[in-house]
Amino acid sequence: MDYYDQIAAYKSGRLSDAERGAFERAMSADPDLTEAVEKYQILEPFVDLLAEEGIRAEMQKIIDEESSASVAKPARNARTRRMMLWRIAGAAAALALLLGYFFLKPPAAKSDQVLFAEYYDHYTGKSTPRKGGTQGTLDTVTVSAAEATYIEAHRLLDPQQSPGPQRARELLQQIENPESDLRRDEIEWHIAISYLLEGDRARTIDLLENLVANPEQRYLDKATRFLKELKESN
């Protein structure tokens, strides 16, 4: 090991206790080593940056591999879908004639406000409260501070309120210890759909896609249906 190898190992904690002790003794006895340590101090930021480059290169490799894998999947799915479509095409044509295809009209596209209203869950007060936590009051009912914040957020999730949705999200995000696990899932749900009140359907879709990635989310089924509807009407 040359001086720089020893110094790099010493700085990164890779030497054993005995080796570290020997190195420290050597530093005070060997002027060449002392000079090398001084030079290394100037080199150190470069060494850190070069190590970072190596880490980033590896991360990019991982990202690229994941991207390649996800590009291949839709292609395979598309082929499968095309085969399925051909098989059912004949049956579908016959059914369409029977149903009087020309009398069926596609449903009118729903506005963001309508979609929000359809999927919004009004506050019901139902949850299994956690024990402990600070208490607040809402009118004559005693609720936890977290629950009071949750209720206020719901009040602001009203298309008539301004700037309701943004302030509602701020409040929902402040709730670190919600009343229950159900509340936690509800908070995620309501943050996602609140963007519809601001016409930001794309962000709602992104957040719902993140929500449905969690198989334990209580809103999984509802979010899956809603995502389908949002994407079909986009």
Binding site: A8, S12, L50, G54
Partner: peptide
């Protein structure tokens, strides 16, 4: 040189 040092810097 850069390549050698990148690998060396990663121990």
């Amino acid at each position: 040189c850069r390549e050698v040092l990148i690998l060396w810097a990663q121990n």
